[in-house]
Design a protein around this nucleic acid. Structure first.
Lengths: 239, 239
DNA sequence: TCAGTTTATTAGTGTAAGCTAACACGTCTT
DNA sequence: AAGACGTGTTAGCTTACACTAATAAACTGA
């Protein structure tokens, strides 16, 4: 050992932060994040993931079951949520204070989230009034590491006639986001599923209360996460 | 060679950006930046500098005369000024839009300057009204890479009776900056040198037109860069 | 001018993180 | 139950950038 005592809590590197974030996303609906899924999301080769997995489980951020996958430990989850908070606050700040479009913020936030201090994030959060959702409708974890768990369903799964509020848009793809914004499909809008044709085909929806109908392909409808409109909200203008 | 053609213009790394910045500062008043000065400013060991100097001159960003020092090439100077623009715009944005004190912005800007895109910097610059000076009074290079060269003298060198405008504060030390702000010694204030005692001793100045006298030690006075007040500005309120 | 000091460079090592090629494990199918 | 295939892991290499120890060049003072 070259140094007498190896640094007990070295600061997380940019790479580590990225790995924790994608492992969080991949393992959020249950189970394990697999090596190849991680590799796919980070656009690195699978052996690179194996190497990092070794380091992350050595430092206690993840739990690794060989040939099965990884899960975050409590500490890993804390760090992941911290990064997600940073990312989402940054996205909101860039759109609200600096005129970014919701399809352009992702890349910028992706780089900034590794460089900002916690203090700066909290200043931004204050300037934005301690917001709960980012521009895509995703919930922003609190500084304490709590995140809202909502029961949402993809528009693709909603029955004809359902009245829904669009809550989250599950993509960061700029072209798709631009298209959705054009169609008025942004978090908060009220929707009525008016038709679905032929079998498992495109979904026709109407913007409620009085908007024009839209036709959305099945793949897109899979990305539009909605909740049923609570009775007391029906027909009220957005506050 | 593993790749057929090695990437002709790889993006600058954070380290490279830092080296270019300090070489710019060290060589701005004439000559060469020496290995040990660079090492001192970056807080790395001299051999690390030798290694980096090799790489930087291989890629044409600096000119190296062994055992003498280095200078920026035109391209290196462009990159250095780009980083300085980023840094100073960030400092101004953080102080003006997010309530940072002028003694706290430096560290934050230091990390952010490597992560922001040029587009974000220009948005910030617009939000700030295309400013010319950062919170410490240092000129902000233009996006095209021009920087204002001003003739300033340290307060320490000013004769008794001189009427001066404080233009720049040549330190990033938080404690000193806090002290100066307390004393009302920020860029733009008008000063009159009222005394200097005994020989080469502390400088007594008065805040013009009617302020209280301040006593400033010689070391501090060395950091307060002033210009003589042009006649047409005398006594006019700051615009 | 020459020895001694200061400063710069070279040599060799370490760590983080990527890669390709080769090998191992699990699962799925017949 | 046995291959065959896909996915995961190991081995070994590369680049960027730091470090220490050893060496070389340049300066300086008697």
């Amino acid at each position: 050992m070259s140094a007498l005592t190896r640094d007990a809590n070295p600061p997380l590197t940019k790479s580590v932060e990225d790995y924790l974030k994608v492992i969080y996303h991949l393992s959020s609906q249950g189970g394990f994040a697999t090596t190849s899924d991680i590799a796919g999301m980070l656009e690195v080769a699978p052996p690179s993931v194996s190497g990092m997995v070794k380091r992350l489980s050595d430092t206690g951020l993840i739990e690794h079951v060989p040939y099965r996958g990884v899960q975050l430990t409590a500490q890993g989850r804390r760090e992941a949520l911290r990064m997600i908070r940073r990312h989402r606050i940054l996205e909101l700040f860039l759109t609200q204070q600096l005129g970014y479009d919701w399809d352009g913020v992702h890349a910028e936030a992706e780089r900034l989230e590794h460089a900002v201090s916690d203090g700066l994030i909290e200043r931004m959060a204050n300037a934005l009034g301690q917001p709960q959702y980012d521009p895509h409708g995703d919930p922003i974890p609190t500084a304490a590491g709590e995140i809202e768990e909502t029961e949402l369903m993809p528009l693709a799964d909603a029955p004809v006639g359902a009245k829904l509020e669009l809550r989250q848009v599950g993509t960061q793809d700029a072209a798709r986001l631009r298209y959705l914004a054009d169609q008025g499909l942004t978090p908060g809008v009220l929707l009525v599923v008016s038709d679905r044709q032929p079998f498992n085909g495109p979904t026709t929806i109407a913007l409620a209360p009085s908007g024009d109908p839209r036709i959305v392909g099945r793949d897109l409808a899979q990305l539009l996460w909605c909740r049923e409109v609570p009775v007391e909200d029906r027909g009220r203008p957005a506050t």
